[in-house]
Computed example of a mutant assay.
Amino acid sequence: MHDVLLGFEKFKDISLNDPFFDSLKSDYGEFAEWFQKKGDHQAYTFRDAAGLLDGFLYLKQENGPVADTIPPLRSSHRLKIGTFKINPHGTRLGERFIKRAFDVAIHLRVEALYVTIFSKHSALVDLFLRYGFVQEAVKHTDNGKELVLERRLDLVWNDVVRDYPRVPIGVGRHFILSLYPQWHSRLLPDSLLKTESSSILQDISHTNSIHKIYLAAMSGIEQLRRGDTLLIYRTADGGSAYYTSVVTSLCVVEELTNINNFATVESFLAYCAPYSIFSDSELRTFYQNKRYPWVIRFTYNLALSKRPNRKALIEQIGISANMYWGFFQISTSQLEHILQLSGDHEKTRSLVYSS
C-alpha cells in the first residue's frame, strides 16, 4: 500500500518521457506535440510513494456544440475529460479519478461531461458506463475511431449509481450517521479536516472508491433503504463535541443488508473487503461475533465546503441536544438548512432530484 499522492501539476513539470505515457503516445500520434503545447496547463496526477506516475487526468471546460463528432453533440456547458489514464493495480483508482471529474463538474456547474475513448479500453469504457455515461456519437481521426461517451447531469435515471453524484432528495428520507474520527477520515478522503494530514490516507480500495461500506449496530439503522440520504457526522476527537463534532459529507444509501444474510465468511469478505475500512482479520472477527450486524453500502457524493458543528445543528437546525446522536432522521428542510450552512446549497440545487 502506498501513500495517496493525488496532486495538481503543470504539464511542463511532468516528464513526457515517463513510461506511463507510452500507451498514450501509441494511441495518439500527436500526443507528444499536444502535451508539450500545454505548458502551464494543469492536470491531476497520482504518484506512488516512489514518485512514479500511476494516474493522469486532464479536464477542460467547454461551451457550445461538439462539432467534430458524428453526430455532433448539442450546444451545452460541458467538462471534457481530455486525458484519463491509470495503471490498474486493484485499488479502484479509476473511481477516485471519476469522482474528481464529477467534483470539478459540480463546482463549475456544467450541464454534462464527455470523453472520447477507443473501444479496446473496455474496462475504462465500462467504468464510464457504470456512472451514467452513454455513447452518443463516434469520432473519426487519423488515430482511428473513438467512442464519444457523454454524461448529462440534467438527465435522471432514477438509479443511485447511474445518477451519481446527484442526490434523490425528493424521496424525503434523510439521516445523520456518526463515525469516529479514525474511521471517518480513512473512509472519506475528501472530507478531511484542516487539522488532519493527508498522510493518513493510503492507496487502497476503500479510500479511492465512490462506494463505501460501513458496519454498525446502532438502533434505527434497520430502516435504511436504497435512495436514502446520509449525512456523515464526524465525532469529536479530544475537544468539546459541542464545537468539534461536525457534519462533513453527503452520501446516498445503495443497500442495507444484515451480516446474518451471508452464509459463509468468504461471501461476507467478498462483499465488504473492496469498500470497507476494516482489515480482513477485523471483518472475520466481526463475522464470528456478529457484534455489528448491519452492513451499509453507500455512495460518497459530496464533501461539504464548510462543516456545521454540533452547536450549529442544535441552535440553528433545531436538533435536540439530549437525543442519541449515533443515528437519527432529519427532515428535508433540516437537510436543506444544513446545506445552506455548509455553503453548498446553491451548488447542490442542480444535483438533487425527486425520486
Rank of each mutant, 00 (worst) to 15 (best):
A321E: 14
D142Q: 14
E315G: 03
L6P: 01
H140I: 11
Y164M: 00
S342G: 02
T244F: 10
D154K: 05
H184A: 12
L302D: 03
E33F: 11
M218D: 14
L302F: 15
Q223V: 15
A137Y: 04
S185Q: 11
Y58A: 14
R291C: 12
V110S: 07
T91F: 05
A236M: 13
S75G: 07
F278H: 12
S15D: 14
T69A: 03
I204W: 06
P274Y: 01
L73K: 02
S185N: 08
S355G: 15
Y292E: 08
N258M: 12
L188I: 09
D237Y: 14
T83N: 15
L108A: 09
V134S: 02
I98R: 01
I169G: 06
V161K: 08
I314S: 06
I169S: 08
F21P: 02
D68I: 03
Q42C: 15
L79P: 01
G132T: 01
S122N: 13
S320C: 14
P19L: 05
N63S: 13
A270W: 00
H206M: 06
R297L: 04
D280R: 11
F128C: 02
S26A: 15
I213D: 00
Q42M: 15
H184S: 07
V110Q: 13
S119D: 15
G220W: 07
R284F: 03
W183G: 04
F21T: 01
G172N: 02
P19F: 04
D228Q: 03
R225M: 15
F11K: 04
I319L: 15
Y214E: 00
T83L: 13
T348P: 02
D159V: 05
A321G: 10
L155H: 13
T69D: 00
L187M: 13
L269M: 01
T91S: 07
L231H: 03
A137V: 05
R307V: 10
G144E: 05
S245M: 06
Y44R: 07
G90I: 00
S240F: 13
V138H: 11
D126R: 12
R92C: 05
Y271I: 02
H211G: 08
T116K: 06
L153M: 10
D163R: 02
N301A: 12
F46M: 11
K194A: 12
K60C: 07
W157G: 02
E315M: 10
Y164A: 04
F298K: 00
K99S: 11
L269P: 00
D40P: 01
Y300H: 14
H211M: 14
K145R: 09
S240K: 15
F31K: 08
I169A: 11
S276H: 05
L6E: 07
P71Q: 05
E346L: 09
L16R: 03
R186A: 08
R162Q: 13
L269E: 01
K25T: 09
V167G: 02
I200Y: 05
H211A: 14
I213Q: 01
V138K: 10
L313C: 04
Q316G: 10
H2T: 12
V160C: 03
T141Q: 10
T332M: 06
K194G: 14
H140N: 09
I277G: 09
I210P: 00
N260D: 14
V138Q: 09
S209C: 08
Y180I: 10
W325L: 06
H89V: 08
H337M: 13
I106S: 06
H206Y: 11
M218S: 10
K10M: 13
P274L: 01
G326S: 03
I317G: 05
D237C: 14
